[in-house]
Design a protein around this nucleic acid. Structure first.
Length: 261
DNA sequence: AGTACCACCTGACGGC
DNA sequence: TGCCGTCAGGTGGTAC
């Protein structure tokens, strides 16, 4: 699930629930989720502290811990989510790390496929540099966007998926931005003119803001969004053309054969 | 530099 | 009912 809008919704949910709470314990149910770090290290870094502030860069969520420069990093992979709850029966089925608070509530980091990661970062900026993460898609201005795309080769969809160029868009939202911009996912970046780049920039912001505003609840998305018609043989909600499925950089890609050129 | 493919993981679904 | 292949909204390594 988690692309930029999903992670932003998780972050706001976190702010409304777990923020400022005192952590009384950390239970690492699945040590593989921590990558190189040891469960003790996570527990030691978090227990007794408060979640002081949250931040997000692309699909990465950071939580600053009180009285230290340390950050908790949450990456959600394809199936990650957060859940705040009190009663054990409300705990989600694939809880990998469980944080408990003084008030008796818990925060579950749930992740069925475990493709994400949970880490303790001594230096958040060093992590961003190490991962070569590009600027967050929602922080970009039009000039910077055009600059980044200028000099980039290859297909436009691959460029959107490249987290070192722009952080936040994944498979679904790249398709949506291209659909709303009426641009074919395999168009090569150097072939795009100034007007097309500006359209892509505008639609990128529009799509991301719309998704966040609707809490990533697809049923509440505008009727003319591709996300509601992601199926080969479906009808384009805009022009009545046929939606086709192809592969772009080995990811399933849906587009309208009639209005995306 | 860009792209294709494999690997990491689990689970759902369709076909036989 | 059960087994098998395929697919899934992410990302890193490797080889061409």
């Amino acid at each position: 699930m988690p692309e930029l809008p999903d992670v932003e919704v998780f972050r706001r949910y976190f702010d409304a629930t777990a923020l400022h709470q005192v952590v009384t314990g950390v239970e690492v149910r699945e040590p593989r989720m921590l990558k190189e770090a040891a469960p003790d290290q996570l527990s030691e870094a978090v227990t007794g502290r408060q979640f002081a502030r949250s931040a997000r860069r692309g699909k990465n969520m950071f939580v600053e811990l009180s009285e230290t420069a340390t950050n908790l990093l949450l990456h959600f992979g394809m199936t990650g989510q957060l859940k705040y709850f009190r009663n054990p029966e409300e705990e989600p089925g694939h809880t990998r790390v469980l944080f408990s608070f003084e008030n008796g509530y818990h925060l579950a980091y749930d992740n069925m496929r475990m493709l994400g990661k949970v880490m303790i970062l001594a230096d958040r900026d060093a992590y961003i540099r190490q991962e070569s993460l590009g600027p967050d898609a929602l922080d970009l201005d039009s000039e910077t966007f055009v600059e980044l795309m200028t000099g980039k080769r290859g297909m436009i969809k691959s460029a959107f998926m490249d987290q070192t160029l722009i952080a936040g868009l994944g498979n679904i939202y790249s398709d949506e931005v291209l659909f709303q911009s009426r641009i074919h996912p395999k168009r090569s970046v150097p072939d795009l003119d100034q007007g097309e780049l500006e359209t892509l920039f505008h639609q990128m912001k529009e799509v991301l803001h719309t998704a966040i505003e609707r809490q990533v609840n697809v049923a509440d998305f505008p009727a003319e969004y591709l996300i509601k018609h992601r199926d080969a043989g479906e009808t384009c909600p805009r022009c009545g053309g046929r939606i086709e499925k192809i592969k772009v950089s080995s990811r399933s890609t849906y587009y309208c054969t009639q209005c995306q050129k």
